[in-house]
Simulated assay, not measured.
Amino acid sequence: MSIISSLNKDFESRVRLGIMSVLVVNDWVDFTEMKLLLEVTDGNLASHTSGLEKLNYIEVKKEFVGKKPKTSYRVTNSGRLAFAEHLNFLEKLLKL
């Protein structure tokens, strides 16, 4: 198996790479903060976070603060492991 084929296709998108990068160094990050950090649209962020949630890489928490809905995200253990493996393969690729 080649190193390039070992890269995780789930993290090929720059948005997903950004989401995971933010979440591995933070506990919970809310939708608005993530959107501002990554400079993406609501729909783009919602689409990618939904995909990562389906893969069990992130956890999504929906709650109300006062009368306003608030959505927050955090990385799961399996997401942290999968992302670390992806980064390790990227590092190996850079050393070739």
Rank of each mutant, 00 (worst) to 15 (best):
D30H: 04
L17S: 10
F83L: 03
T49W: 01
F83K: 01
N56L: 11
L17V: 13
Y57A: 06
I19A: 02
D27P: 09
F89D: 08
K35N: 04
N44L: 08
S21F: 08
D10C: 10
T41A: 04
A84V: 15
S2R: 10
R16A: 01
E59M: 08
G51E: 09
K67R: 14
L7Q: 03
R14W: 07
L38N: 03
Y57P: 00
Y57S: 04
R16P: 00
I58M: 06
L36T: 12
V22M: 07
K95A: 08
L96M: 14
L55V: 02
T32F: 12
G43A: 08
Y73L: 01
G79W: 05
L81V: 14
E53L: 10
G66K: 02
I3P: 13
G66I: 09
L81G: 06
E39N: 15
G66M: 04
G43Q: 08
L90M: 07
L81H: 08
A84D: 11
N88T: 13
K35C: 03
F64M: 13
R80W: 10
K92I: 13
T49V: 14
N88M: 12
V40S: 03
R80K: 15
K9H: 06
W28R: 11
S21W: 11
M34L: 08
H48A: 00
E53F: 08
S50G: 13
V40Y: 04
V60C: 05
N8E: 11
Y73V: 00
V29P: 03
G43E: 13
I58R: 05
K92W: 12
L36C: 14
Y73E: 01
F89C: 04
T49C: 09
L94N: 13
L90I: 11
K54M: 07
M1N: 10
G18C: 01
V60Y: 06
V75G: 02
L17A: 10
E39I: 08
G79A: 08
